[in-house]
Amino acid sequence: MAESTIFQESEHTPWQELGGGLSRQVLGYNGQLMLVKVRFEKGGIGALHHHPHTQVTYVANGRFEATIGDLKQTVTTGDGFYVPPNVCMV
Rank of each mutant, 00 (worst) to 15 (best):
M1W: 04
M1Y: 10
M1H: 03
M1E: 12
A2P: 05
S4W: 01
T5Y: 01
I6Q: 06
I6A: 12
F7C: 10
F7P: 00
Q8W: 09
Q8F: 08
Q8R: 12
Q8P: 00
E9R: 14
E11L: 06
T13F: 07
T13L: 04
T13H: 07
P14A: 14
Q16P: 00
E17T: 06
E17G: 02
G19S: 00
G19C: 02
G20A: 02
G20S: 01
G20C: 01
G21N: 02
L22K: 03
R24C: 10
R24N: 13
Q25L: 01
V26F: 10
V26G: 13
L27N: 01
G28W: 15
G28Q: 13
G28D: 11
G28Y: 14
G28I: 09
N30G: 11
G31W: 01
Q32I: 02
L33Q: 08
M34D: 01
L35K: 00
V36L: 02
K37T: 05
V38A: 09
R39F: 10
R39W: 09
E41N: 15
K42L: 00
K42D: 04
G43R: 10
G43L: 09
G43F: 10
G43C: 07
G44M: 05
G44R: 09
I45Q: 14
G46W: 09
A47G: 04
H49D: 09
H50Y: 09
H50F: 08
H51I: 07
P52R: 08
P52K: 10
P52Y: 09
T54W: 11
T54H: 13
V56D: 00
T57C: 06
T57M: 05
Y58H: 14
Y58A: 11
V59I: 14
A60L: 15
G62W: 06
R63D: 04
R63H: 07
R63I: 03
R63M: 11
F64T: 04
E65P: 02
A66M: 13
A66K: 05
T67W: 06
T67A: 10
I68D: 03
G69N: 09
G69T: 07
D70M: 08
D70Q: 12
L71I: 05
L71C: 03
Q73Y: 08
Q73S: 13
Q73F: 03
T74R: 10
V75R: 12
V75P: 07
T76D: 04
G78T: 08
G78R: 08
G78Q: 12
G78F: 12
G80V: 03
G80P: 00
F81Y: 15
F81P: 03
Y82G: 02
V83W: 05
P84G: 07
P84N: 07
P85E: 12
N86E: 12
V87T: 12
V87R: 03
C88I: 05
M89D: 08
V90E: 08
